[in-house]
Design a binder for these strands. Structure first.
Length: 271
DNA sequence: GCTAAATGTTGAT
DNA sequence: TCAACCTTTAGCT
């Protein structure tokens, strides 16, 4: 489930499982055979995530770049890896752990200048220490594009996907169709700080949780997906807070979800 | 059991 | 604007 939190979690996990030791790399599917051959036997020195991109830095210089896209995934386990099945793009095997990559949009070795170019076209990532929310506000406040579209633009903020977008706008009672220009700095900073907190929770628990404690259904056991969110994928269901039907509409190729009562036209956030 | 849609991006048309 | 990527899950039957 790849929004930014997933990639940061993976970077952390892979550092712990494979970092500082040589890894065996292979591409049973064959599509990344050459790259796997380069990595094979090298020490994994460092892993990092920026937005939805994952990088593994290997001894001697090779950098593996992975972007999971819509349905790419890593499956990880301990002990001996299972017999490869299906389209297995990349398998990494360490001392006592293995991980399989499937379905990724990008799995490639890139040069240092390509890493710089990649990072240069990403906006601040709320999960990185060096992230500057004012850089994002600069773009937002100069734009006539609606905030729901700006939030999904990785050049504005790196790592937000459709779930965080919908839930963040809801939590701030913001009209998704508000032009970026209409956001105040305090409203943006409140959203940013909330986003940092939400995404850190996402890294910690491994999924996107956005409900405030008082809004969580009181029930035991795991929550169904539509019970764990305010508006994302809840079209036609009553808003958790006001009971109005949650709406959905396609916006730049993606489904947007919002509550027309809690986020009325012109509503510019809580600050 | 089957089908459609999905948390995303790139590159061709 | 659309296909590709080719997995997973929700929602049917």
């Amino acid at each position: 489930m790849p929004e930014g939190h997933t990639l940061h979690r993976l970077a952390r996990e892979q550092r712990k499982l494979f970092g500082g030791r040589p890894v065996r790399a292979s591409s049973p599917q064959g599509r990344f055979a050459e790259g796997a051959g380069v990595i094979d036997g090298r020490v994994l020195r460092r892993t990092e995530a920026n937005g939805k991109h994952l990088l593994q830095h290997y001894q001697g210089g090779p950098v593996l770049h992975v972007h999971l896209g819509l349905y790419g995934s890593f499956t990880t386990g301990s002990g001996l890896p299972p017999e490869p099945k299906g389209a297995l793009r990349l398998r990494l095997v360490g001392e006592n752990a293995w991980t399989d990559l499937r379905g990724a949009t990008a799995c490639e070795l890139i040069e240092p200048h390509e890493v710089r170019a990649l990072f240069a076209r990403l906006g601040p990532d709320p999960l990185r220490r060096d992230a500057d929310p004012l850089a994002a506000f600069g773009r937002i406040s100069r734009s006539r594009t609606v905030i729901a579209a700006l939030l999904m633009d990785q050049q504005v903020v790196a790592g937000i996907g459709n779930v965080y977008r919908a839930e963040l706008l809801y939590r701030h009672r913001m009209d998704p169709y508000l032009p970026g220009q209409a956001l105040s700095l305090p409203a943006w900073l409140a959203m940013w700080n909330d986003l940092v907190a939400l995404m850190r929770i996402g890294v910690r628990v491994g999924r996107i949780e956005t409900l405030r404690p008082q809004d969580r259904p009181r029930k035991r056991g795991p929550l169904a997906p539509d019970e764990a969110r305010y508006v994302y994928r809840r079209a036609g269901l009553p808003c958790r807070i006001c009971g109005t039907e949650v709406r959905t509409e396609e916006l730049v190729g993606r489904n947007l979800f919002w509550c027309p009562y809690c986020q009325p036209p012109g509503s510019a956030g809580l600050s």
